Simulated assay, not measured.
Amino acid sequence: MLTAITVENFRCIEHASLDFDSRSTGILGDNASGKTSLLEAIYFLGHGRSFRSAQAEKLKREGASFFRVVGRIATHRGLLTAGLEHTQGRTQGQLAGQGISGIADIAEVLPLQIIDPGVHRLVEEGSARRRRLMDWGVFHVKREFLGYWRRYQRALSQRNAALRSAHGEELIQAWEQDFCAAGAEVDRLRAHYVEELKPHFESLAARLVGPGTTLTYRRGWPAEVELREALHDSISRDLRLKTTHVGPHRADLGFLIDGTPARDRVSRGQQKMLAAAFILSQLQCHTALGAVPTTLMLDDPAAELDVDNLGKLLLAIAEIPSQLIVTSVHERGLKGIEIGRRFHVKQGNFEPMV
């Protein structure tokens, strides 16, 4: 759980320090005042990247040479301080006063997610976003996943490099064993996680979207063959196009309504509700499996939702045992949430509200 945050030179925020309520904190302010920038800074601390930009350099306040985000996190080991600083094109971090080997060190003790006005892209866009969110969930409930995932990514990178090489066929074979062994474990852990997740998702989706909503997992190669066989069958295409076309890096999740892809059946608002159901089901599943408690950020939950859908969403959120950080333009946007602490933001400056 995130108990406090300090942000420097991030987007429009020159400096901000906030203490959060253990259950729910509301952030009120006009559009472009800094509400979403605060959530983006928190997200960066927990994920090592932004949910709005792929380039960390773009997150620096205009004219600044660095940005820094430092959080105080309540864990079973007590309070820990975690921080990330981006300067001269590099991001470096610390946890409990020690350098980190990667963002996974912080992510492990600070599991957090966001539901923002662009969450519908989870349904609407390609597989990368869904695969990343699925892997976030697997990482937090299957401790061995990260090692296999890193091993697979290394083998995939080396195989693709060999495919681009003029004399790479021997190298391709050299990486095949590691590719298949690690890939099979990544797939096994994902498939197991999705099976654990499905009842939570389908129950929430029935409430938020409607009956007949289901979740499917596609592993990235034909179900009837082993990964090694699929790799051999694809080698001519891989050599021609110089990239690997089968494997866990091609996996995807499918959202179906009565057996039909949801993107073909629902409106933008319903896509948002469906994506929210998936994220909330992950938090619910984590709790059921005894994982570290999560922090959920809601960026203007009233955006693009009618009163009925907003009410259903907030009721479902109230039942999820996560810490909440919620932004809104108006107080009415927080209606239905028991807010323990409020802040008002104007031009990147945050002030507590009595």
Rank of each mutant, 00 (worst) to 15 (best):
E124L: 11
F10D: 07
R61C: 06
K335S: 14
G247E: 11
H167D: 14
L253E: 03
Q282S: 07
E338Q: 11
H192Q: 12
G254A: 15
I279M: 14
G26R: 04
Q98N: 12
I115F: 07
H15S: 12
R151F: 06
G333N: 02
N349L: 12
L283Y: 00
E351S: 12
I172V: 13
L84N: 01
A302M: 08
T260V: 15
P293S: 09
I339P: 03
A41R: 03
T3V: 12
T327C: 08
N349Y: 02
T244C: 15
V119N: 05
S33T: 09
K142R: 15
A276F: 01
G118R: 13
A96V: 08
L171A: 14
G48S: 03
H192W: 10
Y217N: 05
G63Y: 08
I320W: 02
P261S: 06
I114P: 06
C12D: 11
K312Q: 10
R151H: 12
G93W: 10
P117C: 03
Q113T: 13
P261N: 06
E57R: 14
S50M: 04
P248N: 08
E8P: 00
H120R: 10
L334N: 00
E338P: 00
R190P: 07
H192E: 14
H140P: 08
V69N: 10
G34D: 09
T3D: 10
S267Q: 11
I337V: 14
A182E: 08
P301G: 03
I13T: 11
R228H: 12
R129I: 12
M134A: 13
L239Q: 15
L280C: 10
V7S: 03
I73A: 11
G137F: 04
A162H: 08
A54N: 11
L280Q: 04
A291M: 03
Q92C: 04
P111E: 04
F44W: 14
S101R: 15
Y193F: 15
H140K: 04
A64W: 09
Q271F: 01
A107C: 07
L280T: 06
Q284M: 07
C180F: 00
A32Y: 06
G333Q: 01
H140C: 04
G126L: 03
V123R: 01
G78H: 02
C180L: 02
E176L: 14
